[in-house]
Protein backbone atom coordinates (compact mmCIF):
# COMPACT_ATOMS: atom_id res chain seq x y z
CA UNK A 1 0.00 0.00 0.00
CA UNK A 2 1.65 3.14 -1.17
CA UNK A 3 1.78 6.62 0.29
CA UNK A 4 0.84 8.06 -3.10
CA UNK A 5 -2.93 8.64 -2.58
CA UNK A 6 -2.19 10.27 0.74
CA UNK A 7 0.51 12.41 -0.80
CA UNK A 8 -2.05 13.94 -3.12
CA UNK A 9 -4.01 15.12 -0.13
CA UNK A 10 -1.25 16.10 2.27
CA UNK A 11 1.88 16.64 0.25
CA UNK A 12 3.98 18.36 2.88
CA UNK A 13 3.14 16.04 5.74
CA UNK A 14 3.70 12.90 3.70
CA UNK A 15 6.98 14.20 2.38
CA UNK A 16 8.25 14.95 5.89
CA UNK A 17 7.20 11.56 7.17
CA UNK A 18 8.46 9.44 4.30
CA UNK A 19 11.80 11.22 4.33
CA UNK A 20 12.28 10.53 8.02
CA UNK A 21 11.23 6.92 7.51
CA UNK A 22 13.72 6.47 4.71
CA UNK A 23 16.47 7.95 6.81
CA UNK A 24 15.29 5.95 9.78
CA UNK A 25 14.85 9.08 11.80
CA UNK A 26 11.24 9.03 12.92
CA UNK A 27 10.68 11.18 15.98
CA UNK A 28 9.31 9.57 19.12
CA UNK A 29 6.19 11.73 19.14
CA UNK A 30 4.20 13.63 16.56
CA UNK A 31 1.25 15.95 16.91
CA UNK A 32 -0.96 15.77 13.82
CA UNK A 33 -2.95 18.97 13.73
CA UNK A 34 -5.63 19.74 11.19
CA UNK A 35 -9.34 20.14 10.61
CA UNK A 36 -11.92 17.40 10.42
CA UNK A 37 -11.45 14.99 7.57
CA UNK A 38 -7.98 16.08 6.56
CA UNK A 39 -6.76 12.50 6.76
CA UNK A 40 -5.00 12.50 10.12
CA UNK A 41 -6.10 9.00 11.09
CA UNK A 42 -5.34 7.55 7.64
CA UNK A 43 -1.82 8.89 7.80
CA UNK A 44 -1.39 7.79 11.42
CA UNK A 45 -2.36 4.24 10.46
CA UNK A 46 -0.08 4.39 7.46
CA UNK A 47 2.83 5.40 9.71
CA UNK A 48 2.00 2.51 12.06
CA UNK A 49 1.97 0.10 9.13
CA UNK A 50 5.22 1.39 7.72
CA UNK A 51 6.80 1.06 11.11
CA UNK A 52 5.55 -2.43 11.91
CA UNK A 53 5.23 -4.10 8.51
CA UNK A 54 8.05 -6.53 8.02
CA UNK A 55 8.23 -6.16 4.28
CA UNK A 56 8.22 -2.38 4.07
CA UNK A 57 9.93 -1.42 0.84
CA UNK A 58 11.12 2.07 0.10
CA UNK A 59 8.94 3.39 2.97
CA UNK A 60 5.85 1.74 1.50
CA UNK A 61 4.20 -0.93 3.67
CA UNK A 62 2.83 -3.94 1.80
CA UNK A 63 -0.73 -3.55 3.08
CA UNK A 64 -1.35 -7.26 2.82
CA UNK A 65 0.69 -8.98 5.46
CA UNK A 66 -0.68 -9.99 8.85
CA UNK A 67 0.69 -6.89 10.52
CA UNK A 68 -0.87 -4.45 8.08
CA UNK A 69 -4.21 -6.21 8.05
CA UNK A 70 -4.40 -6.36 11.80
CA UNK A 71 -3.64 -2.65 12.09
CA UNK A 72 -6.65 -2.02 9.86
CA UNK A 73 -8.91 -4.28 11.91
CA UNK A 74 -7.61 -2.85 15.21
CA UNK A 75 -6.39 -6.26 16.25
CA UNK A 76 -2.68 -5.56 16.30
CA UNK A 77 -1.38 -6.19 19.82
CA UNK A 78 1.35 -3.56 19.58
CA UNK A 79 -0.74 -0.71 18.18
CA UNK A 80 -2.76 1.02 20.85
CA UNK A 81 -5.53 3.39 19.94
CA UNK A 82 -7.07 5.68 22.52
CA UNK A 83 -10.13 7.79 21.86
CA UNK A 84 -12.17 9.93 24.27
CA UNK A 85 -14.36 7.84 26.52
CA UNK A 86 -17.45 10.02 26.48
CA UNK A 87 -16.53 13.67 26.91
CA UNK A 88 -12.84 13.34 27.56
CA UNK A 89 -9.83 11.08 27.68
CA UNK A 90 -9.68 9.93 31.28
CA UNK A 91 -6.62 9.40 33.37
CA UNK A 92 -7.36 5.68 33.61
CA UNK A 93 -7.02 5.36 29.86
CA UNK A 94 -3.59 6.98 29.99
CA UNK A 95 -2.66 4.79 32.97
CA UNK A 96 -3.62 1.76 30.91
CA UNK A 97 -1.29 3.00 28.19
CA UNK A 98 1.46 3.61 30.68
CA UNK A 99 1.18 0.10 31.99
CA UNK A 100 1.26 -1.14 28.43
CA UNK A 101 4.50 0.70 27.79
CA UNK A 102 6.21 -0.65 30.86
CA UNK A 103 6.07 -4.03 29.11
CA UNK A 104 8.04 -5.31 26.19
CA UNK A 105 6.11 -5.51 22.93
CA UNK A 106 3.97 -8.54 22.26
CA UNK A 107 5.43 -9.54 18.93
CA UNK A 108 8.35 -7.22 18.40
CA UNK A 109 9.97 -4.45 20.38
CA UNK A 110 8.19 -1.81 18.37
CA UNK A 111 5.09 -0.14 19.70
CA UNK A 112 2.85 2.59 18.36
CA UNK A 113 0.20 4.51 20.15
CA UNK A 114 -2.37 6.71 18.49
CA UNK A 115 -4.42 9.10 20.60
CA UNK A 116 -7.39 10.74 18.90
CA UNK A 117 -8.60 14.15 20.06
CA UNK A 118 -5.67 14.65 22.45
CA UNK A 119 -7.07 18.07 23.24
CA UNK A 120 -9.90 16.38 25.10
CA UNK A 121 -7.62 14.92 27.74
CA UNK A 122 -8.40 15.84 31.31
CA UNK A 123 -5.67 17.83 33.01
CA UNK A 124 -4.59 14.81 35.03
CA UNK A 125 -4.47 12.64 31.94
CA UNK A 126 -2.40 15.23 30.09
CA UNK A 127 0.12 15.44 32.89
CA UNK A 128 0.28 11.71 33.10
CA UNK A 129 0.88 11.45 29.37
CA UNK A 130 3.55 14.09 29.65
CA UNK A 131 5.49 11.89 31.97
CA UNK A 132 6.07 9.29 29.38
CA UNK A 133 6.54 11.67 26.50
CA UNK A 134 9.46 12.93 28.50
CA UNK A 135 11.10 9.56 28.84
CA UNK A 136 10.43 7.86 25.54
CA UNK A 137 11.61 4.33 25.15
CA UNK A 138 13.58 3.54 22.04
CA UNK A 139 11.13 1.80 19.80
CA UNK A 140 7.94 3.62 20.63
CA UNK A 141 6.14 6.15 18.47
CA UNK A 142 3.36 8.38 19.76
CA UNK A 143 0.93 9.88 17.27
CA UNK A 144 -1.28 12.52 18.82
CA UNK A 145 -4.21 13.65 16.68
CA UNK A 146 -5.99 16.89 17.32
CA UNK A 147 -8.24 19.45 15.68
CA UNK A 148 -7.40 22.15 18.21
CA UNK A 149 -3.75 22.25 18.99
CA UNK A 150 -4.19 25.39 21.07
CA UNK A 151 -5.94 23.40 23.71
CA UNK A 152 -2.91 21.20 24.22
CA UNK A 153 -0.48 21.84 27.01
CA UNK A 154 2.59 23.73 25.82
CA UNK A 155 4.70 21.15 27.51
CA UNK A 156 3.20 18.43 25.32
CA UNK A 157 3.63 20.45 22.13
CA UNK A 158 7.23 21.14 22.95
CA UNK A 159 7.98 17.44 23.27
CA UNK A 160 6.52 16.40 19.96
CA UNK A 161 7.08 17.26 16.34
CA UNK A 162 4.15 19.27 15.01
CA UNK A 163 2.77 18.42 11.57
CA UNK A 164 0.04 20.68 10.26
CA UNK A 165 -2.49 19.16 7.89
CA UNK A 166 -3.72 21.55 5.24
CA UNK A 167 -7.43 21.65 4.49
CA UNK A 168 -8.47 20.30 1.11
CA UNK A 169 -9.31 22.86 -1.56
CA UNK A 170 -13.02 23.48 -1.08
CA UNK A 171 -13.74 23.93 -4.76
CA UNK A 172 -12.47 20.45 -5.56
CA UNK A 173 -14.62 18.94 -2.87
CA UNK A 174 -17.74 20.77 -4.05
CA UNK A 175 -17.13 19.62 -7.60
CA UNK A 176 -16.74 16.01 -6.57
CA UNK A 177 -19.89 16.18 -4.46
CA UNK A 178 -21.82 17.59 -7.37
CA UNK A 179 -20.65 14.69 -9.48
CA UNK A 180 -22.39 12.44 -7.00
CA UNK A 181 -25.63 14.24 -7.78
CA UNK A 182 -25.73 16.56 -4.79
CA UNK A 183 -27.44 19.91 -5.34
CA UNK A 184 -25.03 22.81 -5.48
CA UNK A 185 -26.25 24.59 -2.36
CA UNK A 186 -26.02 21.47 -0.20
CA UNK A 187 -22.61 20.66 -1.65
CA UNK A 188 -21.14 24.03 -0.77
CA UNK A 189 -22.62 23.84 2.71
CA UNK A 190 -21.25 20.35 3.36
CA UNK A 191 -17.86 21.38 2.05
CA UNK A 192 -17.85 24.33 4.43
CA UNK A 193 -18.52 22.02 7.37
CA UNK A 194 -16.07 19.24 6.73
CA UNK A 195 -13.08 18.39 4.66
CA UNK A 196 -13.79 14.74 4.42
CA UNK A 197 -15.47 13.64 1.23
CA UNK A 198 -17.32 10.66 2.66
CA UNK A 199 -18.53 12.64 5.63
CA UNK A 200 -19.68 15.47 3.38
CA UNK A 201 -21.57 12.98 1.25
CA UNK A 202 -23.26 11.60 4.32
CA UNK A 203 -24.28 15.08 5.42
CA UNK A 204 -25.84 15.77 2.04
CA UNK A 205 -27.80 12.55 2.02
CA UNK A 206 -29.27 13.06 5.44
CA UNK A 207 -32.76 14.46 5.64
CA UNK A 208 -31.97 15.84 9.10
CA UNK A 209 -29.37 18.12 7.69
CA UNK A 210 -31.59 19.80 5.14
CA UNK A 211 -34.05 20.47 7.95
CA UNK A 212 -31.30 21.83 10.19
CA UNK A 213 -30.32 24.22 7.46
CA UNK A 214 -33.89 25.52 7.21
CA UNK A 215 -34.09 25.95 10.95
CA UNK A 216 -30.98 28.08 10.98
CA UNK A 217 -32.21 30.27 8.15
CA UNK A 218 -35.53 30.59 9.93
CA UNK A 219 -33.80 31.67 13.13
CA UNK A 220 -31.86 34.45 11.41
CA UNK A 221 -35.07 35.67 9.78
CA UNK A 222 -36.83 35.75 13.09
CA UNK A 223 -33.98 37.55 14.77
CA UNK A 224 -34.51 40.36 12.29
CA UNK A 225 -38.27 40.40 11.85
CA UNK A 226 -39.73 39.38 15.18
CA UNK A 227 -37.03 39.74 17.79
CA UNK A 228 -39.54 39.57 20.61
CA UNK A 229 -40.84 36.21 19.49
CA UNK A 230 -37.51 34.58 19.06
CA UNK A 231 -37.13 33.19 22.58
CA UNK A 232 -40.48 31.49 22.28
CA UNK A 233 -39.76 29.93 18.94
CA UNK A 234 -36.37 28.83 20.23
CA UNK A 235 -38.24 26.84 22.82
CA UNK A 236 -40.78 25.50 20.35
CA UNK A 237 -38.72 24.69 17.28
CA UNK A 238 -35.08 24.80 18.01
CA UNK A 239 -34.24 22.93 21.20
CA UNK A 240 -36.52 20.02 20.47
CA UNK A 241 -34.79 19.63 17.12
CA UNK A 242 -31.13 20.01 18.12
CA UNK A 243 -31.14 17.65 21.05
CA UNK A 244 -27.63 16.22 20.99
CA UNK A 245 -24.52 18.20 21.66
CA UNK A 246 -23.04 17.37 18.24
CA UNK A 247 -26.23 18.49 16.55
CA UNK A 248 -26.16 21.81 18.33
CA UNK A 249 -22.53 22.18 17.35
CA UNK A 250 -23.49 21.71 13.70
CA UNK A 251 -26.23 24.31 14.12
CA UNK A 252 -23.79 26.82 15.55
CA UNK A 253 -21.40 26.14 12.68
CA UNK A 254 -24.21 26.84 10.22
CA UNK A 255 -25.04 30.06 12.00
CA UNK A 256 -21.42 31.10 11.80
CA UNK A 257 -21.34 30.41 8.08
CA UNK A 258 -24.47 32.52 7.68
CA UNK A 259 -22.79 35.52 9.26
CA UNK A 260 -19.71 34.92 7.19
CA UNK A 261 -21.94 35.09 4.11
CA UNK A 262 -23.33 38.40 5.29
CA UNK A 263 -19.80 39.71 5.41
CA UNK A 264 -19.09 38.47 1.90
CA UNK A 265 -22.19 40.28 0.65
CA UNK A 266 -21.01 43.51 2.21
CA UNK A 267 -17.57 43.05 0.75
CA UNK A 268 -19.26 42.36 -2.60
CA UNK A 269 -17.69 38.98 -3.04
CA UNK A 270 -20.78 36.90 -3.75
CA UNK A 271 -18.72 34.13 -5.39
CA UNK A 272 -17.68 32.92 -1.92
CA UNK A 273 -21.22 32.54 -0.64
CA UNK A 274 -22.18 29.24 0.94
CA UNK A 275 -25.89 29.93 1.27
CA UNK A 276 -25.88 31.04 -2.36
CA UNK A 277 -29.53 30.19 -2.94
CA UNK A 278 -30.57 32.51 -0.08
CA UNK A 279 -29.15 35.55 -1.87
CA UNK A 280 -32.28 37.63 -1.37
CA UNK A 281 -32.58 37.03 2.35
CA UNK A 282 -28.88 37.62 2.83
CA UNK A 283 -28.95 40.88 0.93
CA UNK A 284 -31.87 42.13 2.94
CA UNK A 285 -30.21 41.30 6.23
CA UNK A 286 -26.93 42.77 5.09
CA UNK A 287 -28.58 46.11 4.48
CA UNK A 288 -29.47 46.47 8.13
CA UNK A 289 -26.21 45.64 9.70
CA UNK A 290 -22.68 47.02 9.88
CA UNK A 291 -19.51 45.01 9.49
CA UNK A 292 -18.55 45.71 13.06
CA UNK A 293 -21.81 44.32 14.34
CA UNK A 294 -21.46 41.24 12.19
CA UNK A 295 -18.06 40.53 13.61
CA UNK A 296 -19.44 40.97 17.11
CA UNK A 297 -22.18 38.48 16.35
CA UNK A 298 -19.68 36.03 14.99
CA UNK A 299 -17.74 36.39 18.17
CA UNK A 300 -20.88 35.64 20.16
CA UNK A 301 -21.40 32.43 18.17
CA UNK A 302 -17.80 31.39 18.68
CA UNK A 303 -18.08 31.97 22.42
CA UNK A 304 -21.22 29.86 22.45
CA UNK A 305 -19.35 27.09 20.65
CA UNK A 306 -16.61 27.22 23.22
CA UNK A 307 -19.11 27.03 26.06
CA UNK A 308 -20.81 24.11 24.43
CA UNK A 309 -17.49 22.30 24.63
CA UNK A 310 -17.39 23.13 28.33
CA UNK A 311 -20.72 21.41 28.89
CA UNK A 312 -22.98 24.40 29.39
CA UNK A 313 -26.70 23.67 29.52
CA UNK A 314 -27.87 23.93 25.88
CA UNK A 315 -31.04 25.88 26.65
CA UNK A 316 -29.27 28.55 28.68
CA UNK A 317 -26.53 28.68 26.09
CA UNK A 318 -28.92 29.26 23.20
CA UNK A 319 -30.99 31.79 25.11
CA UNK A 320 -27.95 33.82 25.94
CA UNK A 321 -26.71 33.62 22.38
CA UNK A 322 -30.05 34.72 20.94
CA UNK A 323 -30.25 37.63 23.33
CA UNK A 324 -26.82 38.78 22.28
CA UNK A 325 -27.56 38.35 18.59
CA UNK A 326 -30.75 40.36 19.00
CA UNK A 327 -28.96 43.33 20.48
CA UNK A 328 -27.35 44.60 17.30
Amino acid sequence: MSWEPLRQRQDKVVKTLTNSIKKNRLAHAYVFEGGRGTGKMEIALQVAKTYLCRVTQDANPCGECKDCRRIDSQNHPDVHRVAPDGQSIKIDQIRGLQKEFAYHGMESDKKVYIIEHVDRMTVQAANSLLKFLEEPSDATIALLLTEQKHRLLDTILSRAQLLTFTPLPTAALIASLQEEGVSSHMASLAAALTNDRSEALEICREEWFAQARDKVIQLTEELRNRPNQVLVSLQENWLSFFKEKEQLDYALNLLLIWYKDLLFIQLSEPEHLVFADQMQALEQQALHISQKVISEKMRAVLTAKQRLGANVNPQLLMEQLVLRLREG
Partner: peptide, 13 residues
Protein backbone atom coordinates in the same frame (compact mmCIF):
# COMPACT_ATOMS: atom_id res chain seq x y z
CA UNK B 1 4.68 -27.98 31.50
CA UNK B 2 3.59 -31.25 29.97
CA UNK B 3 0.67 -29.99 27.91
CA UNK B 4 0.55 -26.32 28.74
CA UNK B 5 2.63 -23.40 27.55
CA UNK B 6 2.46 -20.24 29.62
CA UNK B 7 3.82 -17.06 28.02
CA UNK B 8 4.24 -13.78 29.82
CA UNK B 9 5.41 -10.50 28.45
CA UNK B 10 8.45 -9.08 30.23
CA UNK B 11 8.75 -5.68 31.81
CA UNK B 12 10.84 -3.19 29.91
CA UNK B 13 13.71 -1.45 31.67
Amino acid sequence: TKNTLFFSRLLDG
